[in-house]
Amino acid sequence: MKILVPIKRVPDTDQKIQVKPDGSGIVTDGLPFVINPFDAIAVEEALRIREKSTDVAEVLAVSVGTEACEPQLRTALAMGADNATLIHCDAPLDPWNVACVLRAYAGRYQPELILMGKQGVDDDFSQTGQMLAALLDWPQATFASKIEFLGGGLRVTRETDAGLEIVRVSLPAVVTADLRLNEPRYASLTSMMKARKKTIERIPTAQLGVVIEPRLQLLGLEAVPSRRKSVRVGSLDELLVKLRDEEKVL
């Protein structure tokens, strides 16, 4: 069995994001990038599945994007992924484009399981996995907090607004990882060094026969100013008076 883990490169979540003066994008000079935190969870889960099972042949990390995605693929390798592929594309991508590329790649690679993040924490789309599952006509289990192998399929616990939902899906399937699926391991320095020596396969998008046509086009960005009163109150009584008499919320 092969597990495919799509990985997105996102700005480090601790960084302050600045919009370019013309609103065309964000300032990326000096901005550190990381593997999307949910994708690190997906990698971790794939590794745990492989460690527990005898029939997982390979965990393959894949990114769709520019050469800049390489460090995040190396991080996945350092965590323990067997191989990594960079599907090269310089054009801006939306969830539909990524899903189309991954569908084409899955057709070639034939994984039994595609494990990915529930959302990229840069754009917060939360769309790619579901679109990919639709395009492949595979079942999906999104927002997974537990994955069990059962009789040739999966039993997945999903985090929903209504509570924990348990579904069974047949394989092949797309599963998207929620925060509480696991705690991803850190890649050690030595494994980072080893990962540096691995070859990352590169495939141009065109070779997969996919034409990138945008469905979602960015027209512009604006920074969001904070418009708060930021009043420090000295006591509970003062707070209660403000809430009751000024804000009239009590």
């Binding site: 939306d94 969830p95 539909w96 899903a99 189309c100 917060d124 789309f125 939360s126 769309q127 790619t128 996995g129 579901q130 679109m131 990919l132 599952a133 639709a134 395009l135 999906q140 999104t142 927002f143 999903r158 985090e159 929903t160 607004d161 209504a162 469905r215 979602l216 027209l219």
Partner: peptide
């Protein structure tokens, strides 16, 4: 909500992929 976040992008996948999530405003340009 998690209901629509699960289902709607899948429907979008069947319908050509023109989808925006978490919309907080709209306008005509």
């Amino acid at each position: 909500t998690t209901f629509a976040k699960d289902i709607l992008p899948r429907a979008a996948g069947l319908l050509g992929g023109a989808m925006a999530s978490e919309v907080i405003g709209h306008e005509f340009r």
